[in-house]
Nucleic acid binder design. Structure first.
Lengths: 348, 348
DNA sequence: GCTGGCACTCGTTTATACTGAGTGCTAACA
DNA sequence: TGTTAGCACTCAGTATAAACGAGTGCCAGC
């Protein structure tokens, strides 16, 4: 790795100072001046010298001062450099780790575990926790069932992956008898059971083409109905916890922006898009402030990690909080939570 | 009705003045003084006279002044008197009514309709809308199905009331074969289909006692499993929309309290309790400020109405907003929305 | 009983000055 | 050449005071 690029051609001392500055600022939220930094940092330097260095750092866009007579605060690039090469990751407290691990107990179902993970993330970090629901594409088709409601409304229940039950009402062109429905279900169960949903979807399309030439109307009907169910397969989704924690941060106390942020969580769509980007990143991924390129998150950072079981990436989890957060603690915690959630989902 | 009690022994003029004051205050959120009221109200009275009347109203606890040199604002009792006997209900705008009615279309399922109602309430009133999910007790049992997961974990799927699908995983003492499960389902479907959930629950208990003496183990097993499913029947629940609308009100801009309020929505429990109280009230029910006796709602009012279909009360819906709201518009709108939702659920 | 008048209250605004944290620059020092 | 002490300067924040104005309560007169 070319550290000279990573580090903006800065010498050791400047980097140490930047590190000290970020840590200090994260700690008490006040712009930090040369005087405190002089006492704070290991290097025994006078405030004046520090001011010189800070001037350089400011020129490089790593820090800035809110106004003339205030200290300096890190810019996004400053934070970036910090998290990329400066920060000393703190290992997660043993006791905490144990406690969290115990929260995931064996009798827990998928949804519960996800919910729990989100809650843990928010409670431990005192920020907002978010977990995407396990990806459905790689899930196995297990069982399907049709129930006639009214003449051409049919309730379809299908079970995926041992315990996920989905249901949907479809509208058909003609009326089916209970026997026909039973037959269709049997047909589908016999040929698709055990395949992944993605595969099933593909297979359905092929089956339709293929059967068209044949004359078995019953099969065509069955597959057509299945297609109804799978074509707009349930959207992805995620769970948020501890949104209200964000109301405690003074940097997010602007009602205007806070409202935007909360609405973003409700909308889901854009946040999902953002989380998707992290899905196939390896390990922890971080968006600092405007890096996310998403207006409502301007003042926030997002720390994520994908979680997986048996080599399969299932989803993403993370926390959202103010840019000024204790990255050195949050990052390892998000990381470990992802692993624990993955483990908890292993035999589900 | 004994108006002399209702009206705190106030003469017509005082009441008219109170009415004018409340309306004015609701309109522009500023304490209203004698001068504006003198111009505003029909009665041609000098500010001095109005001041005298206001002094009386203040003595009775209907209005108060935030400080010496401000106008007056209504107290909770003031609002109460206003909504009970003073307010002139404005009929809902025809165009709006039509628009709202069209939002509920026939192909909508129960959950969707509820969701929609909540959204409509929040969007039209620009406050938070809330709708409890239709009561499940009166719902019909339709179909049950058991699916074996692992040795003693069984996935139970049951369909209620034509389209509601519920699922739950139960743990059994012994292992059942697929055939046994099928048999159990058949048994339950044949004897309980069509009954209300409440009845089913009762029947199960009786069946168990009764069958105990008999020797048909299969039936006992079936009923025992059913009992597992029904014993802690899914909790009540509700849907909120437009929480973030509440962030626009200056009277709720205290972060501390706003956080409390949002957390109350998440907790659900207490809010549900409050809504429950309205379930069997006839027509619109209103809690003004502290009347709800629920801390987080201190600065808020809740306007609710039960909704029903075919004579059966299904749930409650309403809006939550600042005490200072346009009751004369909100009340009829909540009322009519309840009716429309009821109608939309009629043939579901 | 209603009204005009008047003294009074008190939150809000505006102006002014003061404070203190922090800077940039320069000159001297090692 | 890098470091430091010193000094003038900037500027947000706070305090103080004065002026303002919206509104009141009360009283005397119509």
């Amino acid at each position: 790795m070319n550290t000279s690029i990573d580090n903006h051609n800065l010498d050791e001392r400047s980097l140490l100072l930047l590190k000290a500055l970020v840590e200090r600022y994260v700690q008490d939220g006040q712009p930090v001046g040369s005087r405190v930094l002089s006492k704070d940092s290991q290097l025994n330097l006078s405030p004046a010298t520090i001011r010189n260095v800070m001037a350089d750092l400011e020129d490089m866009g790593l820090i800035r001062s809110p106004h003339t007579s205030a200290g300096r605060v890190p810019t996004v690039s400053g934070y970036r450099l910090f998290v990329d090469s400066l920060l000393t990751v703190q290992s997660v407290d043993k006791a905490l780790l144990n406690k969290v691990n115990n929260e995931f107990n064996a009798s827990m179902e998928k949804d519960e575990a996800v919910e729990k993970a989100s809650k843990i993330l928010s409670e431990v970090t005192r920020m907002a926790g978010v977990v995407t629901l396990p990806n459905r594409e790689i899930v196995q088709f297990r069982h399907i069932e049709f129930l006639k409601l009214s003449n051409n409304r049919i309730l379809v229940i299908f079970v995926a992956d041992e315990q996920e039950v989905h249901n949907k009402i479809i509208h058909t062109d003609r009326t089916f008898s209970a026997a026909e429905l039973q037959q269709a279900a049997n047909y589908l169960n016999s040929i698709y059971a055990g395949e992944s949903l993605a595969d099933v979807r593909e297979a359905i399309v092929k089956d339709l083409e293929h059967n068209q030439q044949q004359v078995n109307q019953a099969m065509i009907d069955a597959v057509t109905m299945a297609q109804h169910v799978f074509e707009n397969t349930p959207h992805e989704d995620y769970v948020v916890s501890g949104q209200t924690n964000l109301m405690d941060f003074s940097e997010l106390s602007n009602m205007e922006r806070l409202k935007q942020l909360f609405e973003a969580f409700n909308q889901k769509q854009s946040v999902l898009h953002l989380l998707d980007k992290c899905q196939h990143a390896e390990g922890v991924q971080i968006f600092i402030g405007e890096e996310s390129d998403y207006e409502p998150f301007q003042e926030c950072s997002l720390v994520t990690a994908p979680y997986s079981a048996e080599g399969q990436v299932l989803g993403v989890l993370g926390v959202i909080g103010p840019t000024r957060m204790a990255y050195e603690k949050v990052i390892p915690f998000v990381d470990v939570t992802a692993k624990l959630l993955g483990a908890a989902l292993k035999n589900r």
